[in-house]
């Protein structure tokens, strides 16, 4: 059973009606089948209309949908022979950022990304995708490892932000994020980042200072959550929708601003409605970008990344 978002209420009602008809019509009456078909067509149209014009705030809700694929789903669906690697060699192994070696379409890659978890136990284990310093330090270690062996880096960004906590601050959350961004900038191998769900602030950019930044159609990427922005500038979190509008957080807006390079299409109704198709779309886009960066020299890769961020927004 899929969970519906607030703005999908009319869609949920239609689907419920269809379900009801199906149950009463187990006998296989022709009339009921025709009615179901009609309703299904109506529901499909409603869904594609809804999703064709999602507001920025609605996109934020879709990007956070609990059924949306997460890091482990993407790895299972698009990376062959995945070999997880762990630990920052200094403090611990943060399960909010996962990473390891694998192949995408035969190409060796180091895959790193945030994992939010998909049930209570795994959400707690992965701290809802909010990484601590040791998570970013693990990412740095894996990026440097990939760089030494000429392996391209692929990152999947999906976090509300880096974890705000006492221990995280004590162990240097800010420093870890800054160094992780620096590690991206320094790479002499191709780096492709994909914002797959939420791209939340410094905790996201630390894994996204890449040669190519892809973004799912309904993902969001922002300096602060809409709720956070609203509570500071409007003095109430209730204005989150207004803040989402003002901040420009959607893929098409960010493409116009030159912050991202490519939008990856999602299935109608969002990635969670057809996870396989979503994962496949992402795999093809990443493979395509890796291919285009394949023959670029380390010096040129670094320069391209530097120039891109130096001129962004100007």
């Amino acid at each position: 059973m899929i969970s519906y978002l607030d703005f999908e209420k009319p869609l949920a009602e239609l689907h419920a009606r269809i379900e009801e008809l199906r149950e009463t019509g187990e006998s296989g009456s022709i009339n009921i089948d025709a009615e179901i078909k009609k309703l299904q067509a109506k529901a499909d149209k409603l869904q594609s209309d809804l999703y064709a014009k999602l507001s920025p705030w609605q996109k934020a809700l879709v990007a956070r949908h609990p059924d949306r694929p997460h890091f482990r789903d993407y790895v299972a669906g698009m990376v062959d022979d995945f070999m997880p690697l762990a630990g920052d060699r200094a403090f611990g192994d943060d399960q909010a950022i996962l990473g390891g070696l694998g192949r995408i379409n035969g190409q060796r890659v180091m895959v790193i990304g945030h994992e939010k978890g998909d049930d209570t136990a795994s959400r707690l284990r992965h701290n809802f995708g909010m990484a601590k310093p040791e998570g970013y330090r693990k990412a740095i270690r894996l990026m440097e490892l990939a760089d030494r062996f000429g392996i391209p880096v692929v990152t999947l960004v999906d976090t509300a932000g880096a974890f705000p906590g006492i221990q995280a601050e004590e162990r240097g959350q800010a420093e870890a994020i800054a160094r992780s961004t620096e590690a991206c900038i320094k790479l002499g191998v191709p780096m492709v980042a994909a914002i797959v769900g939420e791209g939340g602030s410094g905790g996201a950019v630390a894994l996204a200072a890449a040669n190519r930044v892809l973004m799912f159609e309904h993902a969001v990427y922002a300096v602060i959550s809409p709720e956070g922005c609203a509570s500071i500038l409007w003095r109430t979190a209730d204005k989150a929708a207004d803040a989402a509008e003002a901040m420009r957080i959607t893929a098409s807006q960010l493409k116009t601003l030159g912050v991202i390079d490519r939008i990856v299409a999602e299935p109608v109704g969002g990635a969670h409605r057809d996870r396989e198709l979503a994962i496949d779309n992402l795999k093809n886009a990443i493979a395509d970008e890796l291919k285009s960066l394949g023959n670029v020299s380390p010096a040129k890769l670094r320069q391209q990344r530097r120039d891109k961020f130096l001129t962004m927004g100007s």
Partner: peptide, 14 residues
Amino acid sequence: EGILSLMQMPKTTV
């Protein structure tokens, strides 16, 4: 300045 302010993090790092 929304996302463009966030992009000053990699920019200054460069």
